[in-house]
Design a protein around this nucleic acid. Sequence first.
DNA 1: TTGTACGCGTTATCAA
DNA 2: TTGATAACGCGTACAA
Lengths: 317, 317
Amino acid sequence: MAKITITDIAKQAGVAKSTVSRYLNGGSVSKKTRLKIDQVVKDADYKPNAFAQSLKKQTSHTIGVIVPRLDSFAQTEMLRGLDAANQDDILLILNTYQDDDLVQNAIEQVDILGLGGVILFATNLTPTIKDALHALDVPVVIQGQNDPAFARVIVDDNLAGSAIGHVAANSTNTLIISVDPQQDFEVGAVRYQAVTSQLTKHYDTVYADFSLATAKQVTTQALATTRYDTIIALSDLMAAGALQSLKNANVNVPEDTSVYGFGGTLISDLVSPNITTFAFDYFAVGQQLYHLFKQQQIKPEPTKIIIGGTLVNKQSN
Amino acid sequence: MAKITITDIAKQAGVAKSTVSRYLNGGSVSKKTRLKIDQVVKDADYKPNAFAQSLKKQTSHTIGVIVPRLDSFAQTEMLRGLDAANQDDILLILNTYQDDDLVQNAIEQVDILGLGGVILFATNLTPTIKDALHALDVPVVIQGQNDPAFARVIVDDNLAGSAIGHVAANSTNTLIISVDPQQDFEVGAVRYQAVTSQLTKHYDTVYADFSLATAKQVTTQALATTRYDTIIALSDLMAAGALQSLKNANVNVPEDTSVYGFGGTLISDLVSPNITTFAFDYFAVGQQLYHLFKQQQIKPEPTKIIIGGTLVNKQSN
DNA sequence: TTGTACGCGTTATCAA
DNA sequence: TTGATAACGCGTACAA
């Protein structure tokens, strides 16, 4: 297949290949030859060779999308938004499995594969990663971290944290399941502080790594010594972990303890009771990421786009 | 960046570019010039241009991985296995969102993008799709459907169905949540029949589409008229849907009704009670897919690889 | 062992 | 409007 080249078309149509090229790229062609080529191209099922095009144009229509993980509804939902907004690019997904070193590798691929740009779902913008990004001469857009040096799309963690914090403001003893700010500043610092700013009484903080297992474990440890009337986990999955721990400890939700999460993903509907959560519009984030990227191709500037969300009251509070 | 070409290296090293090319591809180079080029390449941070290489070689090291959906732990786990086994290829993920037409599009991309092969996660091998695959002149490996015309990796649905069916063999009234065999033959026919072959008493069958919502809905409908002591859903997510429906109907699990699922993914641990399920080793499936693909590159033949799994008893039965 | 010259498929330049 | 020709970066006969 696909062995038909522009030269074949030219021969069959009795014109020069440069004419065919012009025809294909909307250059000036007489009506007569246009019809001729039209015919030939159609029944030859000609498809231009992407390699040759990219080699010539010194750039490709492929965007590297660097994601920390795929087994997360937030990530896949953003990818769906990207796909939906995508006009005519190829999205090359590079999964880094939450490993910063693999992010480096992925960024290197940009040069090697001649990618036309990068969309990075960031959890941890280390200096090395930032340097590597700045060294690229293609458009870069990031998501997840609010770094003024980059064009970025973020969710409104201040709004989200405040909203949840506000509902739980009068809890007498709250447990917050957070993440290390060093590893995710937006969640571990911004979202966290938005929550605590609303709380009026005592609260404790424990740290997990976004996983179900760890969240469950740290919750169990915390419950060993203290009773909490409210648990706020900074992600839905971690909230699910807390839920399991509470169940093991025979604590009723929401009668004895209220539980809150963040994200509004399938997980919050999967567990029982369903988790009251702040739902972000991740699909919109994906769409905006693509639009922002296309805009960067035209005029690079560190624009910031914030996507909001809504508090969804379910059964866990 | 990446403007350094093989010619630049050649100039700086004072040799011909063909020598550099040989150096890069392991051809015969004298020790003297090798050291010279070594030096230059190193501090020039040279990276070969993938487009030029692919154009020349008429093939690329990029494999198109066509997946029906990304928001599924089974799929992402297989992708992880693929990544892990991957030696030196680029995996281009093409999400079809469970739309057969998009599968067609994806297969077309093979020619357009000059992909070196295809790995297809299949749910529904329509004649059109099969034709399109056969028309390709690159290696093709499929997963999910046991079609003797293709090299394939499948999970052992006979084993799995029998195992679950065996445990539930003596249930007096069983509800099976299946899927349309027209849409997924392996699950809707093979897995289904393996289950029913073990059942000794009465059973009803309802159909859903792999989603939580639909499974929940059809279960609720079924429960409206009948009481079941066992519900077998052909996937974990659908089992989760059944669980929610049962909860709404105030049916206790497992006291009143036992629930079974298939997959062994995170979902079975996320819901409460945890679902007793047949766990497939999807990671191994991914690894085998890659190895099988590499083998097809050397010697094409419709090999079949079957990956087993284990029955995991949890709390739902 | 090394270098020269050409071709992969496409686009761009420049005459005609 | 058209066509011949030169590039893009790389690999590889072939000759030296």
